[in-house]
Amino acid sequence: MGDPEEDVRIERRGRAAWIRLNRPERRNAFDGAMARSVVAAIEDCADSGVIVLTGEGRSFCAGGYLARMEDPDPREVRAMYEGSLDLVDAVRTSPRPVIAAVNGAAAGGGNELVVACDLAIASSRATFGQTGPRVGSAPVLGGTNVMSVQIGEKRAKELSFLCRRYTAAEALDMGLVNAVADPDELEAVVEEWAAELLALSPRYLEIAKISSNLWWNSARDSFRSGIGMLAQAVGSADMLEGARAFMEKRPPRFEPPFTGPREH
C-alpha cells in the first residue's frame, strides 16, 4: 500500500492547485492506492480555480504499476484497473479545469491521463504513447475511444495498436497537447494558461467543461466493459509474456491466437 503523503504532493499557488505525482523511482506509475490518493487530491482541490497535474522527476506518468508483473495478484490488478477508472473520471468530473503539465514521458495509462485532462502543455523533452498490446494489456480508458475524438480515429489506432513513441512536437501536431514549452519554462507557461482561466467565470467554465464531456460520457460504458475484459485476462499467456519481456527488456514473443486447426 502506498503512503498518500508520499504518493502525491499538493502545492497551492494562489487560486491554482498543483498536484504532483510523487513516485519518481517508478516513473510515477500508480497502483490502486496511489490512484485513490490522486482522486482524493483532485476532490480536495475543487475549491481552487484551476488544477494542474504533473509528475515528479523526469517522467509525467508511466500508467498502471504492478509490483509483481510476472506473477500478478488478480485482486491487486483489479484494484489498479478500478483505481485507473476512478482517476480519469475524477479529472473529467471535477468542476475545475484540469491542465496536464507533461514534464516527461507519458506512457500507457499516463498517456490516457493526458487524454482525460482538459488541456495539456508539454515540455519539449516529453514523450507520448500507449504500451498495452506490447506489454500484455490494452488502453481501454480513453486510448481506444476518446482519443479518436481528439486526434482522429486512424491516429488513435496508430497509438493504441502500434505502441510507438511520439515527441512533444508530434503530439502537438496531432492535437494531443495544446502547447509545447522549453523544459525550464514549462511551469511558467502553465501558470500563464492558468492565469487566463482564473480571469474567467468559474461558474460558466464549469458549465462549459461538463457540457464538453458528451463524448467522454458516451464512452463510459466502454471503459467499464474494457476493465471487465482486462480483469478476465489477468494471468493469461499474453499478459505474462508481455510482463516478462518488459522486465527482461526484450521484444515479446506472443503466440498466434490459433495454434491448431479450427473446428467448424
Rank of each mutant, 00 (worst) to 15 (best):
V149D: 15
A79W: 03
S124W: 07
V190Q: 11
P256T: 12
I227T: 11
S212P: 08
V38I: 01
N111M: 15
K209E: 07
L214E: 09
E206R: 13
D31Q: 03
V50W: 03
D73T: 04
G14T: 04
M174T: 11
L66E: 15
R75I: 07
A17Q: 08
E185M: 06
H264P: 11
G49F: 06
E248L: 07
G260E: 14
G32K: 02
S212L: 10
G2S: 15
A29T: 01
V102Q: 03
A17K: 01
G228Q: 13
A233G: 11
A188F: 04
M34E: 00
R68H: 14
R244H: 12
A237Q: 09
K154V: 06
T167N: 13
D184E: 11
W18Q: 01
P251M: 02
E11N: 08
R203Q: 14
I227Y: 05
D86T: 03
D86G: 10
R244S: 12
G2Y: 02
L87C: 02
L87H: 02
T131E: 11
M34C: 00
N178P: 07
R58A: 15
N178H: 14
G109Y: 06
L119S: 09
P256C: 12
A46E: 08
L87P: 00
L141P: 01
A67P: 14
I42H: 02
I151A: 11
G143I: 13
L197I: 12
D184Q: 09
